[in-house]
Design a protein around this nucleic acid. Sequence first.
DNA 1: TTATCGTGGATATTTATTATCCGCAATAGG
DNA 2: CCTATTGCGGATAATAAATATCCACGATAA
Lengths: 172, 172
Amino acid sequence: MKLGEGVEAAIHCAAMLAGVEGEATLSGAAMAEAFGLSPSYLLKHLNMLSAARILESVSGPAGGYRLARSAERITLLDIVLAVEGREPAFRCGEIRQRGPAKLDASAYVKPCGINAAMLKAERAYRTALAEAKLSDIVSDFMSDADPRSVAASCAFVARHQRPQKSSSTKQA
Amino acid sequence: MKLGEGVEAAIHCAAMLAGVEGEATLSGAAMAEAFGLSPSYLLKHLNMLSAARILESVSGPAGGYRLARSAERITLLDIVLAVEGREPAFRCGEIRQRGPAKLDASAYVKPCGINAAMLKAERAYRTALAEAKLSDIVSDFMSDADPRSVAASCAFVARHQRPQKSSSTKQA
DNA sequence: TTATCGTGGATATTTATTATCCGCAATAGG
DNA sequence: CCTATTGCGGATAATAAATATCCACGATAA
């Protein structure tokens, strides 16, 4: 059982995007630079997030990404499912009916108990992820992390965020 | 996030081994046949299970595998960890400190909040798996599954199990 | 002694992940 | 209108991991 590295990147990017002001955006290249990731591959994951309506993207110069809704309404589950896909980790191959002494298909209408137990555990996992809001991640970071790290992160966002033309909110 | 197919095979084999009498064993080849799996690869997984002391193995003719302890003291978590390894699915690459504006290492002594949230969810997953005993899987199968399937499964075990020479328990 | 079985290593084969590149549409600014 | 920048999508390569097979070996029951 393994999660792709893209999940870590996606969550960090989403958390960083939670710090941009109003309708401003951050370009994918800027975020790739911030985390030392390959830009072209990070774009793939950011694209997944916008396909899942977690991020919004703006084309053209001054374009980039921003959160599609408030950080309070984005959970880690949203992000993990968007990047890793929605299929469960355990996939029942129904090997119980692959032996040589096959029974009639009607003997296997009831779902496999092993599959049920595995999926139940996965539901617990997803429930825990669904309880972790992006806003919690951000506020915990703001209050608990090293002040230098917080300051550097805020400075990076302030330096790279790009205000939109028809935006009513302005930066200092 | 994906679990290998070996997990399904391992759990089904363990459940089947819960049905053997006393110190009798089932050969890996027999179980591979029962589930339509490649024998040589299934042996790898069974080997993992015996390395983890979940199964015991007996060499020689009349050899094979049996549970190393009662099915009540074997959980799905035991099996999943034995087959998939004990490392968590989410591995924090510390990308927060890989950007161009690196701070001193002392700014990153506090653990990453994202990592903490992901690991917390994984703990929920493992807790749920730890609550699923192999004996529950077996008894649910016995009571809920199609009677033809139960009968076929018991018949298979009865036909292939091999009593050990110095065993005090005998089969009918 | 022989045939059967598990163990461990070496090694293909297949599949998934990671990463890069290029043409395209969108768009802000001149 | 023109150009430069950005995200999007597809094609493709490089890398890693899971899956599968084979063989030599030690153990052991008959």
